[in-house]
Simulated scan of single mutants.
Amino acid sequence: MHLLALCAAGGLAAAPAQAEDGALPYDLPDTVDSTLAPGSDEPARYIQDTNDLDENILLPAARPQDDDPDRKWSRDYIAIAAGVINSPTYSGSDDRRFLPGFYLRGRLSGYSFSTRGTNFQVDLIRQRRGQRTDWKLGPIINLRSDRTGGVKDPQVEALGDRKLAVELGISAGVTQSGILTSKYDQLGLRIVGLKDISGKHGSWVVSPTIDYGSPLSKRAYLGVSASVNVYGKGFGRYYYNVDPLGSAASGLPVYTGAGQKATAGKYTIGVAGAYGLSGDLRKGFVLVGGAQYGRIMGRYADSPIVAEAGSADQWLFGGGVAYQF
């Protein structure tokens, strides 16, 4: 699920997550999967990494199935959301900042699309009206802006900014409706694989995610999500290693452990909810909000960027307003 989406549907969160790391992802049958991803009016270097926000501040889908028996595909819709998120200044930081967030999600002729954090994805498997099992497969493009600017810690700042990375990949998964509480609750599994195509970190990220969401009433919705991020060696070298020159400039010790092998580097768990201001989650304005906890692990947590200058515990909070039409 997502934050702004979570918060709106990114929910604001941003909401990996993603793609890897990142926000609130839910699709009730023929509803809006709300996830809010963090967007910003500031230059790209100040935008929080999309994936670390994505998975998992959740946001619900919005409308039930169309009652038209002649309709073949799930109904068309567009959903937008806006709000604010509070997040670490970089993945591993113990400093925080507020950022504006936005979210866009929709479906046209059975094909779904959405933003999640700073990524955009399209589902190329058309969703048929009334189906309980929804398979998903499609391309995803992501902008990774971690440590591209706005770092508050003077030691990490002395290491120099990283450049904005452009990642391209595939998102695949399945969502089953009618699991526990009603025909509208959903259990979803998905995996996102991303590869840097811009030559910045030159590596890859793979993120499996599981999420569950259910309407509590016609007016309220709650969802939870969990995800793990597995990083390639080049990712660790670029974002978490400290070379001798960086050590001399920052005072942090030399560290090469993060780039020695591909490994799981972070897990996240999130919760998000929505409340229909009109009395009905299926239409009109909806308040959204959520929280996400992430923990940096293993070789990544041992990096002085995290262990000495930051924190392995990563919290994300967000809230906002969504509207579907």
Rank of each mutant, 00 (worst) to 15 (best):
A5G: 14
C7R: 07
C7W: 02
A9Y: 09
G10S: 13
G11T: 12
G11P: 09
A13Q: 08
A14D: 00
P16Y: 07
Q18A: 15
A19C: 03
A19K: 02
E20F: 04
G22K: 04
L28R: 08
V32Q: 07
V32D: 06
T35A: 13
T35M: 07
A37Q: 14
G39H: 08
D41V: 13
A44P: 08
I47V: 12
E55H: 11
E55R: 13
P60C: 00
A61Y: 03
P64L: 03
P64Y: 06
D66R: 12
D67T: 14
R71A: 08
K72W: 01
S74E: 15
A81H: 02
A82H: 06
A82W: 05
G83E: 04
S87W: 02
S93G: 15
D94S: 15
R96C: 00
L99R: 10
L104G: 07
L108I: 10
L108G: 03
S112C: 00
F113R: 01
S114P: 00
T115A: 09
T118G: 11
V122F: 08
R126C: 04
D134E: 15
I140F: 02
I141G: 15
I141A: 13
R144Y: 07
R147Q: 13
G149R: 03
G149W: 01
K152I: 06
V156R: 04
E157R: 15
L159D: 06
G160D: 09
K163Y: 08
S171F: 06
A172M: 01
A172S: 03
G173F: 08
V174C: 09
T175K: 07
G178I: 10
T181K: 15
S182A: 15
L189F: 15
R190C: 00
I191Q: 03
I191H: 04
G199W: 10
H201Q: 13
H201R: 12
W204C: 10
V206E: 08
Y212T: 11
G213A: 13
G213C: 07
P215I: 05
S217T: 14
S227L: 12
G232I: 03
K233W: 02
R237F: 00
Y239L: 06
N241I: 01
N241K: 01
P244H: 10
G246S: 11
V254R: 11
T256A: 07
G259K: 04
T263H: 10
G265K: 02
I269Y: 10
V271A: 13
G273E: 02
Y275T: 01
L277I: 14
S278N: 14
K283F: 01
G284K: 02
F285R: 02
F285N: 03
G290E: 04
Q292G: 09
Y293V: 06
Y293W: 11
R295M: 05
M297C: 00
A301P: 08
D302V: 07
S303G: 05
P304N: 07
V306N: 06
E308M: 13
A309P: 02
S311M: 03
W315E: 08
L316T: 14
L316R: 14
F317H: 05
F317I: 14
G318K: 00
G319T: 11
G320N: 09
G320P: 01
